[in-house]
């Protein structure tokens, strides 16, 4: 099939703009990124700098790929990262607009590549259970109810791609942060640091990102379909963290 791409090009330190490229001879079995590979290969042959975009695992788990395709983070297919989007979703003659994700804390590096390391700042603030190597007791000493373990896994499935931020009209990182917070808060192992963690991660998040106004766009964009419920649970835990008498947090 033959496609027409409108791609955002931006050099470091300069303003960007859209450029139009033709993409002839695209097979429907290609992934979206392979389609861009083919375009790049031709650009190189023509002596034009290839389009910079990020990707790594190309199987939807590393969270590196990040494109805004026709106004949707990760493109039109639900629960699918850009790298897993396949060209069979498109028809011959389609026009596709591709631009980088935008948020004040996702500065554009070049073309379609943005810097998402602000997400790491949130993780660093408390996204862990302090269990230095060697200090762990036998794993089966702490039973975890299956429902809780499954729910924690639902949250932990987050791949940290930042689509939630890109899709949010407020550039809020609530879905990412709540997934990271609740993964640990839902488990018995995470209880000791629960209030401290929630407080630190939420407040760090707010140093970089906007506030949640419950649009729900994040969930729609999320390649792992992380539930909005985690946002509600995090909000509750955050307010509790302010009220809780932590001296009693060893008691039920």
């Amino acid at each position: 099939m033959h496609l027409t791409l409108k791609v955002w090009r931006q050099e470091p330190g300069q303003n960007g703009m859209f450029q139009t490229y033709e993409a002839p001879g695209i097979s429907e079995d290609m992934s979206f990124l392979e389609m861009l590979d083919v375009v790049n290969e031709r650009l190189i042959e023509e002596g034009t700098a290839p389009i910079v975009f990020e990707s790594d695992c190309r199987e939807g788990i590393c969270g590196t790929c990040d494109l805004m395709i026709d106004g949707q983070a990760h493109g039109p297919e639900k629960a699918t990262a850009t790298c897993q989007l396949h060209m069979r979703k498109y028809n011959d003659g389609d026009h596709i607009t591709i631009e980088p994700w935008r948020a004040a804390s996702f500065p554009v590096i070049r073309d379609l590549a943005v810097d998402r390391s602000a997400l790491d700042a949130i993780q660093e603030a408390g996204g862990y259970i302090s269990a230095p190597t060697g200090s762990a007791s036998d794993a089966n000493l702490t039973p975890v109810p299956k429902d809780a373990a499954d729910s924690a896994m639902d949250a932990a499935a987050c791949i940290g791609c930042g689509a939630c931020v890109a899709a949010c009209p407020n550039s809020a990182a609530q879905l990412f942060t709540s997934a990271k917070v609740m993964h640990l808060n839902l488990l018995p192992q995470g209880q000791a640091e629960r209030w401290k963690r929630t407080e630190a991660m939420v407040e760090t998040m707010e140093e970089y990102f906007g506030s949640c106004t419950n649009h729900g766009e994040c969930h729609e964009a999320c390649p792992k379909e992380i539930s909005l419920d985690f946002i509600a649970l995090m909000n509750k835990d955050y307010v509790k963290s302010k009220i809780k008498n932590r001296k009693l947090s060893g008691q039920k």
Binding site: G71, T97, Y208, E220
Partner: peptide
């Protein structure tokens, strides 16, 4: 939110849930 979000996408946005 205005500070956190640089505004719209010049290529257009497609809202799904909002």
């Amino acid at each position: 939110n205005l500070k956190a979000s640089p505004g719209s996408y010049p290529g257009g946005r497609d809202y799904i849930a909002a």
